[in-house]
Amino acid sequence: MAPPLQPVEGGVGLRHRLDPERPLAVSGLSVAYHDRPVLWNVDFVAPRSGLVAILGPNGAGKSTFLKAVLGLVPALAGEIRSFGRPLDRRSGLVAYVPQRSSVDWEFPITALEVVAMGLYHRIGWFRPVRRRHLEAARAQLDRVGLADLADRQIGQLSGGQQQRVFLARALAQDARLYLLDEPLAGIDAASERVVIGLMRELAAAGRTVIAVHHDLESVADVFDRAMLLNVRRIAEGPVAEVLTAGNLARAYGSAFRLGGPVAVASPG
């Protein structure tokens, strides 16, 4: 089960120092759209490093969880702390990759220019993107295997390549905590290998990656831990402990047919 939420120290001396042990601590997070609750009283503590999947049925509030953590949607209640402090988006410590469907892929911009956007907070207001920024962006594009397509308009890339461009943009930000919304949805096998490989690389380098994921069958192959959501938090912990028949039934309804997930579930 979930580790108990530890009280967050607010000591004067610690306030401005980063606490690397606690990339993200969420307590009592509730979000509603109009009168409909989307998330209700969710607690979550991210591990110091590793890969965490956010699982749950459609409309469970998975994407909203990431957005609320970043303050992109208003929370009714709850506290978000990142590295021991209230989350400050301008710090660049948290990188966010939205769902691929959330942007206009016909926008007149190249893959390289998109990746350079991961550097904008560091470049600063009013300053132009310079050659050295583009070179830094090109290095990240190379990491995801797309250096050859740097000057392509992004709409001309495949879905998987677009996802890799988004990941390169997050890598360029050089963050400590990565929040990825469906990074593996609808992408080709080659892109999937690249994305999973880089997520593992980040985890090995001591970063925490939290990704919304929809494919229960592949969770155990990719992620260390998981949080199962359906408006409320159903379960959180190591993948095998979360994906039990009982938890899945509570998240997806009792009519949920247990197929693949049973293989990875270890009841009790």
Binding site: V97, S102, M117, H121
Partner: peptide, 18 residues
């Protein structure tokens, strides 16, 4: 560049504090 990022991907812009 701020206009470009806010037009292309507003959520990402906001996640960077823009």
């Amino acid at each position: 560049k701020e206009l470009a990022i806010a037009s292309f991907d507003p959520d990402h812009a906001r996640s960077l504090g823009i």
